[in-house]
């Protein structure tokens, strides 16, 4: 029994890690008042880039790095269009997703059906791995897991306890006030979007070089959109991002566990998407949740310096 629980938890963590990375990235982006609906595309590009680089060099770390850069590159398009040109963020994000899905399919096609020789392997943390149960569960995972946890803690700390975080939040709530306090609003916005893109790229890399070790067209499979929903679920706070990511990781695992019971795989495939709607419904029906769903105040609104 303990073995089953252990294996479920391990798989939940693995499935939740890309969601956590993506959600933390989008959380930072949205805190700066920019909505980036391109996560699905950035994750797809991250996945294909990491795969190709790892395939070519045999080094999954280089794959991760390349995916982060690719995510940053994609995000900087969105940043330029939405911050620089103050264009419609919804449409720009959608365009980014289309581009990412298309380009990843185009570049990845020659690699379909060719698994990696080396993937990102688990890395044991000395001493801590010896702790009963928790050791093997939390300290014999792959580097993506450690990174996502450290990143999450860092986001939480920076947002709550540093002027950097306070500035970032104030930009999403009231950029004019922030500007008058001497905060470089546009610079913050650019950086926030780019960091968000890097996180999405790395999330994609996890999918193609750690979670699995092959490239399949469409392998992101809506996780980018679930990330957008999880960002709302998180109420733009890092601790709740952990909760949401692992909850959904668990749902992905549940989907596979229920399959032997003879339930149609198509109905099971609806689970994560249906749950996303259910969670938002739950927020919507509780008046407190509904009120809290509306942060940050200036999300999606273009900002122009000196405009009244």
């Amino acid at each position: 029994m303990a073995d089953i629980v252990f294996s479920i938890l391990v798989r939940t963590i693995a499935a939740g890690t890309p969601l956590l990375l993506g959600t933390l990235g989008e959380l930072i982006t949205e805190r700066a008042g920019i909505l980036n609906l391109g996560v699905e595309g950035m994750m797809a590009m991250g996945a294909v880039t990491a795969f190709i680089v790892t395939f070519g060099t045999g080094n999954p770390w280089l794959g991760m790095l390349a995916a982060a850069l690719m995510g940053a590159l994609m995000a900087s398009i969105h940043a330029f269009v939405s911050v620089g040109l103050r264009a419609n963020q919804t449409v720009s994000g959608l365009a980014l997703t289309m581009m990412g899905i298309g380009l990843s399919g185009l570049w990845g096609k020659p690699f379909i059906g060719k698994p990696l020789a080396v993937k990102m392997e688990p890395l044991a943390v000395p001493l801590l791995e010896k702790v009963p149960f928790l050791g093997p569960l939390l300290f014999r995972r792959d580097p993506y897991f450690y990174m996502s946890v450290v990143f999450g803690l860092a986001v939480w700390f920076v947002m709550k306890h540093t002027s950097l975080g306070i500035n970032l939040r104030s930009i999403g709530e009231n950029p004019r006030a922030a500007e008058s306090q001497g905060v470089k609003v546009r610079l913050y916005k650019y950086l926030a979007v780019i960091v968000g893109g890097m996180a999405a790229g790395v999330a994609g890399a996890q999918l193609s070089t750690a979670y699995s070790k092959s490239w399949i067209e469409g392998m992101v499979a809506g996780r980018g959109w679930i990330v957008i929903a999880l960002t709302i679920f998180s109420l733009w706070e890092a601790p709740r991002a952990f909760l949401g990511a692992y909850l959904f990781g668990g749902i992905f695992v549940l989907q596979y566990m229920l399959q032997p019971l003879g339930i149609s795989p198509n109905l099971l495939a609806m689970l994560p998407y249906g749950t996303t709607l259910m969670i938002l419904l739950g927020y919507g029906f509780s008046s407190g949740g509904r009120r809290r769903m509306h942060a940050p105040a200036m999300l999606g609104e273009p900002y122009k310096r000196g405009e009244v």
């Binding site: 040109l85 264009a87 449409v91 959608l94 980014l96 581009m99 899905i101 298309g102 185009l106 096609k109």
Partner: peptide, 23 residues
């Protein structure tokens, strides 16, 4: 011999240029 999603590349790129043009 390109994959079917290639059309999405056109779509995404054209869309992003369209909203840039609006600026």
């Amino acid at each position: 011999g390109l994959p079917a999603v290639t059309v999405q590349v056109f779509n995404g790129i054209i869309l992003i240029f369209l909203i840039m043009g609006e600026f």
